[in-house]
Write a protein that binds this DNA or RNA. Structure first.
Length: 519
RNA sequence: GGGCCGGUAGCUCAAUGGUAGAGCACUGCCCUUUUAAGGCAGGGGUUCUGGGUUCGAAUCCCAGCCGGCUCACCA
């Protein structure tokens, strides 16, 4: 929506004209500053407890500023609400208190205008804390009209494209993002308290690595090299562990050139942390403590509602990937596999056949056959079957362990079963929230894994790893046994704010750009 | 990318083939403790865009644009 388009329309023309009239009264149209004695939340904090009589005696004088969200004129007096800092405060303006000029200004103000007020606090007949204005100061004009004051802004496209309007019109949106900020602060507090050091590693990487996902590609002109926006900070953080930073973490953006959904945005925020001399079991314990700390700090409780389900962080369940398949196998799809049945890795294909036969008969939208391509590795097939069968049912916090080797190129193998690795993913509310493992620190094994990935890549899997020689070199200097983990901050925020879409916890989610008129 | 749903005044929404409407917002007048303030009067539309069917289209058909949900990919 271009401003020029509106120039001719009466609404903006009217307001432009009013701005002219305000200047005529001797006010600057866009003044530099306004010194306040209090923010609006500070006024509420200091004076909400005071009675009408106490205020009447003290007549505390304040200077405050905000955006006009309501206006109720009554002839030679009137009310308005100022909004700011997530609260509202009423202002009472009367001709005999503010004088001709300021009262003329009051009459020229529109919803959305920014003003400063000086006056004393009192309570109205209905008991509402209110500034009795002695002076008004014009601060800025809203040339475009605010969204509807009662229903707010409902059009989701405008809410995402013009988040500033969403924040102004919908109080709960501001609350969601305030909570997100507290979540991140609580994470930092917890990790700092555990002796972790926060670091920043490259967002632009010559080789994309650390996760199996397609990267965004860009180009640096001066060096004339291609660079990739990182899909994960993992390989850099582990280089730091090699360098003796035994406990490190990073909270920052990752970029993945994949689809967009209610759980995926191309750029998203990830917490990754690494702890030397620890393994994936230690990471489980740490995760439980971390999530309880954050939830308790932010919500005051370790239980909360999500998608009409009561979720409790008091107990974290543990299932191996195979156990989860057995547990959640659809009864209608025939006899469930037994643990013995899935022990033999190749046996998984039998169960995929059974699942696909059943899924093909389902008319529902949400169940589809896996239809794996010919030659899919057994480990990949197992993970695909797990996701199809079990993932959506993992509402209560559940660690899924024993991931197949093929889908885990950076994890250490299990000593008793080299086809599987020491890795878990944490599921809450049917979403994958965290991914952790005992980090592979054998450089020769790591090179073999990279080379297998390279093979997949050459077969057309664009999310497979490339060989990172410098990372192998770093491991060759010796990396301590290390546990590492990534936690999706956006999804954690979804859980703790009851948001069904990731777009509701990202201030500016990616949308297709608006077309300019005339194109 | 596939499927389903949606796009009407600044905003929230009506109008199922027959004169495009309401509330809020806006304009004018009245009103010195109101709070979804009130009273009276008024202005405002490329019904997403382009085709088609029809005597007649916001409404039916086709194509496109944008968005939502969902499936696939992924975290």
């Amino acid at each position: 929506m271009q401003l020029e388009e509106h120039e001719a329309s009466s609404l903006i023309a009217q307001r432009q004209k009013k701005l002219g009239a305000i200047v005529e009264l001797g006010f600057e149209p866009y003044p530099r500053k306004f010194d306040v004695t209090h923010t609006l939340p500070e006024i509420l904090a200091s004076y909400s407890g005071k009675t009408a009589e106490e205020l009447e005696k003290e007549k505390p004088v304040v200077r405050a500023a905000g955006r006009m969200m309501t206006i109720r004129p009554h002839g030679k007096a009137g009310f308005a609400h100022l909004a700011g800092g997530g609260v509202r405060l009423q202002v009472y303006v009367r001709l005999d208190a503010v004088g001709e000029r300021d009262f003329e200004l009051y009459k020229l103000l529109d919803l959305g205008d920014l003003i400063g007020v000086e006056g004393y606090l009192f309570r109205t007949r209905t008991g509402e804390l209110t500034i009795h204005a002695g002076r008004l100061q014009f601060l800025a004009k809203a040339l475009l009209p605010m969204p509807e004051k009662w229903h707010g802004l409902a059009d989701v496209e405008i809410r995402y494209r013009q988040r500033y309007l969403d924040l102004l019109a919908n109080e709960e949106v501001r609350k969601t993002f305030e909570r997100r900020s507290r979540i991140v602060r609580a994470l930092r507090d917890f990790l700092d308290g555990e002796g972790f050091m926060e670091v920043e590693t490259p967002m632009m990487q010559p080789l994309p690595g650390g996760a199996l996902a397609r990267p965004f590609k860009t180009h640096h002109n001066a060096l004339d090299i291609d660079l990739y926006l990182r899909v994960a900070p993992e390989l850099y953080l582990k280089r730091l562990v090699v360098g003796g930073l035994d406990r490190v973490y990073e909270i920052n953006r990752n970029f993945r050139n994949e689809g967009i959904s209610t759980q995926h945005n191309p750029e998203f925020t990830m917490l990754e942390f690494y702890q030397a001399y620890a393994d994936y079991r230690d990471m489980m314990d740490l995760t439980e403590r971390l999530l309880r700390h954050v939830t308790k700090t932010v919500l005051g409780s370790t239980t909360f509602e999500y998608a009409e389900q009561e979720i409790s962080l008091d107990r974290f369940h543990r299932l191996t990937m195979k156990e989860a398949i057995v547990e959640y196998w659809p009864k209608e799809a025939g006899t469930a596999p037994t643990m013995e049945g899935v022990v033999e890795t190749r046996g998984v294909f039998k169960w995929i056949e059974a699942f696909d036969r059943w899924a093909a008969q389902q008319s529902g939208e949400s169940i589809h056959p896996l239809a794996l391509p010919q030659g899919t590795a057994p480990g990949m097939a197992l993970q695909a079957l797990f996701e199809a069968v079990a993932e959506r049912y993992l509402i209560q916090p559940t660690f899924i362990t024993e991931f197949p080797l093929e889908v885990s190129p950076l994890s250490k193998q299990k000593p008793d079963d080299p086809n599987f690795v020491e890795r878990f993913e944490l599921f809450i509310g049917g979403m994958e929230l965290a991914n952790a493992f005992s980090e592979l620190n054998d450089p020769r094994e790591q090179r073999d894994r990279f080379e297998y990935q390279q093979l997949l890549r050459e077969k057309g899997d664009l999310s497979a790893h490339t060989v990172d020689e410098d990372y192998v070199r770093a491991l060759s200097y010796g990396m301590p046994p290390t546990g590492g983990e990534g936690i999706g901050i956006d999804r954690l925020t979804m859980l703790l704010t009851g948001s069904k879409s990731i777009r509701d916890v990202i201030l500016f989610p990616l949308l297709r750009p608006e077309k300019k008129s005339g194109e």
